[in-house]
Design a binder for these strands. Structure first.
Lengths: 219, 219
DNA sequence: CTCCGTTTGTTGAAATTTCAACAGACTTAT
DNA sequence: ATAAGTCTGTTGAAATTTCAACAAACGGAG
């Protein structure tokens, strides 16, 4: 467990909990670490939503596939990100999304019941954990607001430009890489891939962006 | 304050806090009650996100208006619902949405700073409040998942049918009223109003739904 | 370095959505 | 009850998106 302390201490879920106490707490919570290959389903749609996941290394995505096979990507997951906590904390009976690894990765799993239903008053760190979970959920809420702002735009061009503006802001530069390939970006923006490629070309010809594969630059 | 105890006790934020303690706590938190007329801006886009709102009576909506004047409705707010807590808890500097009353209404306002930054350990009810806030945020997260599931559908028809299926489930019947007029429904589904009206007529002609204004019935 | 599978860009046709404009139904105020 | 204003449904044209198919570019394996 110790080798993960570095990434865990950067996880917002463990803010204000020092390393020593963190190890004790993780033990008490029954935290497990599991490794997954690339393109492996970490949590499957329809299964119980008991566990909170924390990505320790690699990369993953939250996706949903509808009736007709259209994939929708809700968000990418990077090391230090928490996933599944919204469903586990809301105690929904089954997951409406699938979490899938896009790179080989390591995941820490914590049974959310241990957080919600036990030791509620006698442990200071447990209170801090609830508080951190609350802050984390609020932040995730903001992320969904942004996703909705992006996808609520009516045209492919507007969706793309809104997304790129957020990515530029996030990276702190007008030159940045995105975590999606074309098909994934289309599935995140909820648009057609070929139309998205065409729109990227158009923006490039108009001198509004420079781009090459996953690299973009706003002019 | 006492006249609102009934609705407050049904607010998820105050679960497991009895009425007597609730009154003391609200006083301690400096809760205020304000009345608004219809079509009044309760929280304005761009303003600080300090307050948590609880709708006591009437109705309101969370909306966003873009660049070009397109309105997007993120959700309706009913009595007992909490709003603004996501932004206040995430401590964003300014609100990215506007909360607007659609009926005359009464709102309880609580400065979120009082919840996040004071009295963190010495008050049992305060801990319960944080816990409730966490659950509430998780539930709101699920709501956004549903909104995204609805609007990520590619056609007006699919968006509408997905929305109606959720409303039917929520009401527990295939016959129900929706809280939006046509323009509002279009702004919630992120589609064109006239196209939406046309689609509703089509579904009616095909015998898939019955509808009259805000009343719908799935066949 | 070459081959092969994958990703990206391009294109034209079909389907859908948006836009603008208007008429009829409904609601509210007087 | 009437009038004014709002909401809903309808329509055709314009714009956009989706779909299918293919070619070019890229990247990894051997």
């Amino acid at each position: 467990m110790k080798k993960y302390l570095d990434i865990l201490s950067r996880c917002p879920l463990f803010n204000n909990i020092n390393e020593e106490n963190l190890l004790v707490m993780l033990d008490c919570l029954g935290a497990k670490i599991i490794a997954f290959d690339k393109k492996y389903t970490i949590f499957a749609d329809g299964h119980p939503a008991k566990f909170i996941g924390i990505l320790l290394s690699g990369a993953a995505q939250i996706t949903r596939v509808d009736y007709y096979g259209n994939r929708s990507i809700l968000s990418g997951i990077e090391p230090g990100d928490v996933f599944g906590e919204d469903f586990a904390c809301a105690e929904v009976s089954s997951l409406p999304v699938t979490i899938i690894s896009t790179e080989p990765c390591e995941v820490m799993l914590i049974d959310c019941g241990h957080i919600l239903h036990t030791c509620k008053n006698n442990c200071g760190f447990h209170q801090q954990l609830i508080f951190n979970l609350m802050k984390n959920l609020a932040t995730k809420n903001i992320m969904f607001h942004q996703k909705i702002e992006i996808t609520s735009r009516r045209s492919t061009r507007e969706k793309l430009l809104t997304y790129l503006a957020y990515q530029a802001k996030k990276s702190g530069s007008n030159s940045f890489d995105i975590p999606f390939d074309r098909q994934e970006l289309a599935d995140y923006l909820e648009v057609d891939r070929s139309g998205l490629s065409a729109e990227i070309s158009k923006l490039r010809n108009e001198g509004i962006i420079e781009s090459n594969r996953k690299h973009f630059e706003l002019i």
